[in-house]
Amino acid sequence: MARRLELTIGMVQEAGLAPERVGRARGLLRALSWFAARQPLGAIGGVIVLALIATAILAPQLAPHGAKDAQFTQYLPPSAEFPMGTDHIGRDILSRVIWGARLSLYVGLVSVAFGVTLGALWGIITAYFGGWADGASQRAVDALMALPPIVLALSLMAALGQSVNNVIMALAILLTPTAARTMRSVALSIKESPYVEAARAAGCSHWRVVFRHVLPNSVATYIVLFTVNIAYAIVVEAALSFLGLGAPPDEPSWGGMLTAGTQAIETAPWMIFFPGLAISLTVFGLNLLGDSIRDLTDPRLRGGLG
């Protein structure tokens, strides 16, 4: 009898829990395959981005040498020992490209997380409360956006000084105004919606409305801004380092590696090819993924002609 009860409980558990688990796994798989079928290019982008993330996380295991180890012969062409050759002070380029993935992703993610989040909060709060603070902040956004992006980043680097963290800060400042403006327009339309009015009528405070109603409803735009801007931040970081004003030269920045390669363009072309390919592939993957995420969230573009 007791045994039977156990069995029954076991069966109930099996019946109750297992299908749910299976269902969940199937659901995820189905969601992924749905995405791949809907957005084949986006799926390719996703694979590239996953490879990039894996490279960044596993850099210590994947890279044969340290990013700053300069103990080899200079300007060695690609060979079995150094698949991408060595650079002007005898560092293994393969290792630097791998560590560079970590640097790029770190700079891209952190700067976008700060910049877009700050911009989003700024845009939503000023849009919701309006008044002179909104007007003043709009003029500040105008002033920030009056400078060409690279030029603004350059002047910020001039003021902050060269270091990886200052590049992140400069990029965050660069991303904030555009994010603020985009989120502001979203928040303005949410502010006028009936459910916000209903929440106010039910006695919610303004801050409660902002955090419980306006914020959650603008998350889709936030996610799109986030994904689209990562590629942008990575390119701007590389451009700054390429101009010699981003990360310090010993850091494995792909842009900085390109500059070093340009100095030796005749004798050691491998110094430009591999870092250049790494940036291009990264940007390509992130753009494909970002585009398809944007398409999925924008119903007007579904099944489009583009």
Binding site: A239, F242, L258, T262, G276, I279, S280, F284
Partner: peptide, 10 residues
């Protein structure tokens, strides 16, 4: 996809 500085250098 090709960043402008890479196209230029190529």
């Amino acid at each position: 996809s090709l960043p402008i500085f890479f196209t230029g250098v190529l």
